[in-house]
Write a protein that binds this DNA or RNA. Structure first.
Lengths: 235, 235
DNA sequence: GTCTATAGTCGGATAGAC
DNA sequence: GTCTATCCGACTATAGAC
């Protein structure tokens, strides 16, 4: 059924091989995210993964090769989590476009609500800590890995966000205004992941559990509800 | 007048001492922010500062001592940039409180507009790149340095933001709602610093120059204008 | 495919000359 | 106060046994 069982005589080797690769990537994501490329040592990664130090040059050529592979791996994981939702929405929107019907504001708000609720859960989940650290590092000091994560996940997702926000505030999704609004909207949620320490201090929370997640989801829905056409500025 | 000229015979030494310290802190901020504590090497820092490698153990005891001192230095610098504005506003608000008069919505919006315009300039300035990197690292993996930056600058600033947003959306500044709204508001601006790479890609900007700063300031004012009482949620 | 041994480099900290 | 010289540990990558 899967690639692990093509041949009987190599089955266990291939399986071990895949497990070692997977473990390495999993732990590389965590350690690279935590300490950065320079700060992360291959020893730390292989120890955490429970594999031999030589597995890195063997499977990925070098530490740098592992880093790039980790970026692809990350884009892949996130894609698995949100790709289905994104594709479903993109298809429904495309179907509307095909009929010439505009995407309605109410429908867009429903879609956006679904997205933000998923995002909030993702942002505060234990596993996304590592992902977020990796991505934020790449944002600050982009390497060759950034392009892989951006074009694989972030770009398409922001594109969908622009489309939805455009429908909600009745503006062209390609306009500067919608782009800025969309980025700010993402920021208004992302802050709960990126500024984790400050958030906990401000909210006087010890940690983010089920109660806090529910609170954040409510807050996220309110942010969606607060989206509206631009008002006049003061001064 | 200042500590540089207490004695004539030691004047030049003390001055050199201060210059060396200052150069070290300045470059430590950049290098630590860029590579993190582990990734940053003392050789990188002293080379960039143009001082001897031994200056670090001499002045700061150790690499770790330099890191802590760098956090204080950073809190100090940022305080110099925004402390005046913050204090002026805090005093005017305190004066209102003393008379029992509430902080008006229009006044709060004016204050907030001034803050966001300053923040935008700060966020995209070349020098704040290093500051932002340092702070974001601390957010993700807080060390002893976080408390110094948070209580020195971030905490007071967020407190002011909560007060202003509370006045604008007519809610208690201590409420969960205002705390969350304030954090999200900060995030909606901070995204332009933190997600720099994604922002440039989305906006199709090569870099952030005067034109882009003006555009971001306009956008920030619109975000202030968009702040309002909570609306009903959908679904 | 996985292991041990090791080469070669770079890290932080110390000692001591000036 | 600042420099050179140096120790010692940790790092990545390679060679070769099994």
């Amino acid at each position: 059924m899967n690639s692990m069982s093509e041949k009987n005589d190599t089955k266990s080797d291939v399986a071990r091989s895949d497990i070692t690769r997977e473990k390495l990537l999993e732990n590389a994501l965590d350690v690279f995210g935590r300490y950065g490329f320079d700060g992360a040592s291959t020893r730390k990664i292989t120890n955490a993964a429970g594999v031999n130090l030589q597995a890195i040059p063997y499977y990925f050529g070098s530490k740098e090769g592992l880093y790039i592979a980790t970026a692809d791996y990350l884009a892949n994981i996130i894609g698995q989590y949100i790709g289905g939702m994104r594709q479903r929405m993109a298809e429904q929107i495309a179907a509307l476009d095909a009929t010439g019907m505009p995407l309605g504001e109410a429908q867009a708000r429903l879609f956006l609500n679904e997205i933000v609720e998923t995002m909030v859960v993702l942002f505060v989940s234990k596993k996304s800590e590592a992902w977020a650290r990796f991505i934020i590092r790449e944002q600050m000091e982009p390497t060759a890995a950034f392009e892989r994560v951006y074009s694989g996940v972030m770009g398409p997702m922001i594109g969908l966000g622009r489309r939805l926000i455009g429908a909600i505030i009745a503006d062209d999704p390609a306009s500067e205004n919608v782009r800025l609004r969309c980025l700010s909207f993402v920021g208004s949620l992302m802050v709960f992941r990126m500024a984790n320490a400050a958030v906990l201090a401000q909210m006087e929370w010890d940690a983010i559990g089920d109660k806090e997640i529910a609170r954040l989801q409510q807050h996220a829905r309110r942010l969606v509800a607060a989206l509206g056409p631009a008002k006049g500025e003061i001064s």
